[in-house]
């Protein structure tokens, strides 16, 4: 399932960064699509078991996460302590169920364990915590901070002449935090071309649409004015995401922002484009079953996910 280059190709200091993937390879696209499907099903199941959680923004970023872990990050389960690994920071920490799911799919943790969301003595807290899960890279859950932490990582890696790259996924509502613009100014000033920010632009936040809470537009123009390389893409089009990441990795002396236009609740029709599924919500058994059925899960898979039966 993991189409990335073998571990032997991981970067070491001073080495040329490899771009070995043919990003239009049908099998790669299919594998990433399968990963995204896994993430969405796992998100629904874990939030159902937890009795609370934020499904809307976890579903909207599933394709982005699958692309990052499936094709972009030089990161494997046995390289999570390699100093020259790429870093991914989930700055929109409330999408933690999606991070846990993609990590499970790519072997960083056990898929069944990762269903144990938001429970006492489980490392899968409501928001990612690096002391519980080292591969989470930092602790998030207070919007804006993950971006700054990623910036600090990028700055440090540049000081070390490492070829490792740093990625941060931000929510659109998160763009309202002042710290985000402090970080945006700082990353451009320091020419951090090893930093890539992805905005999960699903147009909705906790209470309502962004435009009714605090409008973001023109978002791309704002980031360009901050001296970022900016591209706008369809955040559910795997080819477009991979291509955007590829171009982001090639910017020179500029940080890159990918504004990913997405649908909140993507893949679950009764959630799509409705801010009330931002969370934190409780899913009934029926709602969970309906969501999983909409995500093409078989009856057996639904039972396995919701009743915890071993396959």
């Amino acid at each position: 399932m993991n189409m990335k280059p073998a571990k032997a190709e991981i970067q070491t200091e001073g080495a040329q960064r490899v771009q070995p993937l043919n990003i239009s390879s049908p099998s790669l696209i299919e594998d990433i699509a399968a990963a995204a499907r896994f993430v969405r099903r796992h998100v629904i199941a874990s939030i159902y078991h937890a009795g609370s959680g934020h499904p809307g923004g976890a579903l909207s970023c599933a394709d982005i996460l699958a692309c990052l872990y499936g094709a972009e990050l030089n990161l494997w389960p046995d390289s999570i302590h390699d100093p020259h690994r790429d870093r991914f920071v989930l700055s929109k920490g409330h999408a933690a169920p999606a991070l846990y799911a993609v990590a499970a799919h790519y072997g960083f943790c056990d898929a069944k364990d990762a269903l144990n969301l938001r429970k006492l003595n489980s490392p899968y807290q409501g928001h990612p915590h690096v002391k519980d899960l080292p591969w989470a890279e930092t602790s998030t859950g207070s919007l804006g901070q993950g971006f700054s932490v990623a910036l600090g990582m990028a700055m440090g890696l540049k000081l070390q002449h490492s070829t490792a790259r740093v990625y941060a996924l931000l929510g659109d509502g998160e763009m309202q935090e002042g710290e985000v613009w402090e970080a945006a100014m700082c990353a451009a000033h320091h020419k951090l071309d090893n930093l890539c920010v992805l905005v999960d632009y699903n147009k909705m936040q906790s209470d309502d649409r962004n435009e009714n809470i605090m409008g973001l537009e023109p978002l791309a123009a704002k980031l360009r004015a901050f001296n970022w390389a900016v591209a706008e893409i369809d955040g559910h089009d795997i080819k477009a995401i991979l291509s955007g990441l590829h171009r982001a990795a090639a910017t020179f002396e500029k940080p890159a922002a990918l504004i990913c236009h997405t649908v909140k609740g993507k893949g679950v029709p009764y959630m799509e484009n409705l801010p009330q599924w931002h969370g934190s919500v409780k899913l009934t058994r029926q709602q969970a079953e309906d969501a999983l059925a909409a995500l093409d899960a078989t009856l057996w898979e639904i039972k396995e996910l919701l009743d915890g039966q071993k396959s």
């Binding site: 901070q145 700054s148 700055m155 440090g156 710290e179 970080a183 100014m185």
Partner: peptide
């Protein structure tokens, strides 16, 4: 240098620590 932006500086220190500084 982080400029007059202490929140970003404080959190970025966490990131610098994470990569070994």
């Amino acid at each position: 240098q982080f400029g007059i932006a202490e929140q970003n500086m404080m959190a970025a220190a966490g990131g610098l620590s994470a990569v070994g500084y």
